[in-house]
Design a protein around this nucleic acid. Structure first.
Length: 427
DNA sequence: TCTGGGGTCCTAGGACCC
DNA sequence: TCTGGGGTCCTAGGACCC
């Protein structure tokens, strides 16, 4: 017998803003926004800020007056806190299903195929996450991942649903009616550009997409679009990806707190990113075959936009911070142009391979020849794990780092740093 | 003055081969 | 005068996600 698949999609509401509120209850019920790195844009809003019309993604300088009028709280982002809370949510969710997929920092898919009452399970999950971690979540349920995702969107949009919506027991007519209410741009995987192209051929809502001939979608758009239509129709094409696969590229980049014109400072920043990339490579036990370095000015400034990048091969492949730093510094020196006001630098590791499967190079010798280097990196990582990232730095990263971004109002790292634990006072 | 960061997948088109 | 065609591999760029 063919059991119908059943997926739950759990998504934290306003995740970053909610994390802040958990540890500072005085924020509850107030308009609150969390900013991107460098205090640039709004990337998370409390329900109150959303209702007041603060747009997602808006640059701070454009909405600053409005936020002030609203009496809104404006926070810098605290990824240490959000990352730790995310781990706690995911660990809890893993208990409810035979397999689960951590889809993003605040989202998880659960495979609960065979579950007798998925709606009851979803309500229990909601209660447990709220009680255990203080975070509100919505749960979408469907026979495919895309329908579960869509159900979640419906649950989020209608307060009467109590945070849970299911496609499982709807008749074909009922399902079609729900999908007809969903603009095509609101479907997972369709954004503005694809939405515009779909509308040009008369597809304006999710129900219309389901009715469209798959061959046409494949030819006119892509296999992804045809698969999307299948998924929305209840035919499961996507499965749970439950083995955390290794990254195929690892990058680190950041805007500067102010424009940078000196080569020395650019190189310091590039060295810092290279060291971070190397550390991430070691964490997932990979070597990089190539390093790509990009430096650019601001695309918003009045002066001409400059964006230069170069890719250098690492022979033999490596995850040694010193080699990546040297390569990044050389690359920056090569790309650097005088008089450009640089806004950002990024370092990206490509062509990653497992350290367990080292491909020896005929000319460059054995990749693992430097056992001392490996021990050194292991020691550096151990110290930084124990005492906090960045405790041990490379001299070429610079000491003062005047190019670092702004973080004017960052909350304490409540859950990961002993000296920043929240203190509860009892009267 | 001030506009994020880290990823994945797919396709088109050129290079190259026979 | 007439100047092939089909297959594969690779890369850059586009589009999307959160």
């Amino acid at each position: 017998m063919n059991t119908q698949r059943c997926f739950l999609q759990v998504d934290c509401n306003n995740f970053f803003a909610s994390c802040e509120t958990v540890f500072d209850p005085s924020l509850a019920g107030r308009p609150l926004v969390v900013l991107s790195n460098n205090d640039g844009c709004v990337i998370s809003r409390s329900a109150e800020a959303r209702r007041a019309g603060v747009p997602m993604g808006a640059p701070l300088f454009e909405v600053r007056d409005r936020l002030k009028r609203l009496g809104a709280v404006v926070m810098s982002s605290n990824y240490t806190l959000y990352g730790d809370m995310s781990n706690r949510v995911m660990a809890l969710l893993a208990h409810y299903a035979r397999s689960h997929e951590v889809y993003s920092v605040d989202e998880c898919f659960l495979d609960v195929t065979g579950e007798a009452d998925p709606v009851a399970l979803a309500r229990r999950i909601r209660d447990d996450v709220l009680r255990g971690l203080g975070l509100p979540v919505c749960v979408g349920i469907g026979p495919t991942k895309t329908l579960a995702k869509t159900a979640n969107r419906i649950a989020k949009g209608d307060p009467n649903l109590g945070g849970v919506f299911s496609f499982m027991d709807l008749s074909a007519t009922e399902r079609e009616a729900r999908l007809a209410e969903l603009a095509v741009e609101e479907v997972w995987g369709i954004n503005r550009r694809l939405g515009t192209r779909l509308r040009l051929v008369g597809i304006a809502d999710a129900a219309a997409l389901v009715r469209t001939d798959r061959d046409f979608l494949r030819r006119r758009f892509s296999v992804v679009m045809a698969r999307l239509a299948d998924e929305l129709s209840g035919v499961a094409c996507l499965d749970i990806d439950d083995v955390a696969s290794k990254k195929k590229m690892i990058l680190s980049s950041r805007s500067f707190g102010r424009k940078v014109t000196s080569l020395a400072e650019l190189q310091e920043a590039a060295a810092m990113h290279a060291a971070l990339v190397a550390e991430k490579l070691r964490t997932q036990r990979s070597h990089a075959g190539f390093l790509q370095v990009t430096i650019r000015s601001s695309p918003h400034a009045s002066e001409p936009y400059v964006r230069d990048s170069t890719t250098v091969g690492l022979l033999p492949v490596s995850n040694d911070s010193r080699r990546l730093i040297a390569a990044a510094r050389d690359a920056v020196a090569h790309l650097y142009r005088r008089h450009v006001r640089y806004a950002k630098v990024g370092v990206c590791a490509l062509e990653l391979s497992d350290v367990e499967h080292v491909q020896d190079d005929l000319f460059a010798g054995r990749a693992d020849a430097d056992a001392r280097g490996e021990r050194l990196m292991a020691a550096v990582d151990a110290i930084n794990r124990k005492f906090g990232r960045g405790k041990l730095k490379w001299a070429s990263e610079g000491a003062a780092q005047p190019w670092q971004g702004r973080r004017d109002n960052v909350s304490p790292r409540y859950t990961t740093h002993k000296d920043e634990l929240p203190i509860v006072k009892a009267n």
